[in-house]
Design a protein around this nucleic acid. Structure first.
Ligand code: FES
Ligand code: FES
Lengths: 174, 174
DNA sequence: AATAAATGGGACAAACTTGTCCGATAAAAA
DNA sequence: TTTTTATCGGACAAGTTTGTCCCATTTATT
């Protein structure tokens, strides 16, 4: 029985295999999309390096923040297009961030750029319109949480994040 | 030029068409998956009907909560499997909920059953492990929000939701 | 007993998110 | 000028979520 034949009889996706071997986490309720997570982590990294006068390149960045390199490239392209970071092409090229951007950019802006939108007014159980006038049964409990979250995203600037104590993501000490 | 030919030259998905006509909302940061939204809405509906001694069937339910009927069927099957509701097959069949379940079931339980898991310990920017010992730069701002949300989901029971004032979802007045 | 009305469950399809590949382009270094 | 090292950008592939279809099964009604 050839390997090809073997493969034919046990056709299974990689994720199914991982799941059955318990190597894969079950679904987890995440606040952000993967793209957003990578964008935030990358932005923090680039900002820190920029403050030190260093330019970061794609390989460095994706290693430091442990993200898939080609997917990260796409995300950085989006950030460049929206002038959150700027890029230099060619040898010794890479990505940098202006001090002014570091000082003023909010988390919320980052999320809006990557996810195209961020709603602070959507009903938690998907009502057409969320309002205090016609609240769903969860509105009361949910409203203050949503407000806190929204405020946090708007008020937190990148500069605050890079001023924190050092911490590790993957192999890299920030 | 036949319709077939027309279709060939302008091959476009329905969602692309809707997007370009602004009929489709952009991505919105939702708290729950669609499946969870439908599950919560359906559970509220079934609970209310059960309290009145009425049995609800699939058609009624999905009309009332404005959800796709076949997808809703799948979700209800899951709820039955986990004994959140129970079903009666055949003519005059449908779904019902026991008073005891209505009184004790929490939102969190519902979410766990539908999404397979619900994490209250995941790092907001995807660090391997979230902890106060090795916090990411967002940990401090995020922790209290996450705790509030988690507490809300655990403490809110279905009975509280159906005791609320009436409200509308789609065409149905709850 | 036959029919109608309901849930159960499997296969499939569409849409979206996540991720890969490869060639074009640009700039520095040799 | 050539080579090397980067980003840019489009096509494509994999994986997950959302949604559809169809038929089997079960029960009440006629
Ligand atoms: S109406 Fe549902 S959260 Fe406001
Ligand atoms: S470590 Fe990131 S949220 Fe706790």
């Amino acid at each position: 029985m050839s390997p090809i034949c073997f493969e034919f009889f046990f056709q299974i996706t990689l994720s199914e295999l991982k799941k059955s071997l318990f190597l894969l986490d079950k679904h987890i309720e995440n606040m952000f999309s993967k793209a957003c997570e990578y964008a935030i982590r990358a932005t923090i990294f680039i900002a820190k390096e920029s403050m030190k006068g260093k330019r970061s390149n794609l390989t460095e960045i994706s290693k430091a923040i442990t993200s898939p390199i080609a997917f990260t490239a796409k995300i950085l392209q989006t950030l460049v297009k929206h002038k959150i970071i700027f890029s230099i092409k060619g040898a010794r090229g890479g990505f940098e961030m202006l001090p002014q951007t570091i000082n003023t950019l909010s988390l919320k802006h980052l999320v809006v750029v990557i996810d195209d939108d961020y709603s602070t007014t959507a009903c938690i159980i998907g009502l057409n319109k969320c309002s205090s006038e016609n609240p769903c049964p969860l509105h009361e409990q949910y409203e203050s949480i949503r407000t806190d979250l929204s405020k946090m995203l708007e008020e937190t600037k990148i500069i605050q994040l890079i001023e924190k104590e050092s911490f590790k993501i993957g192999n890299h000490l920030f």
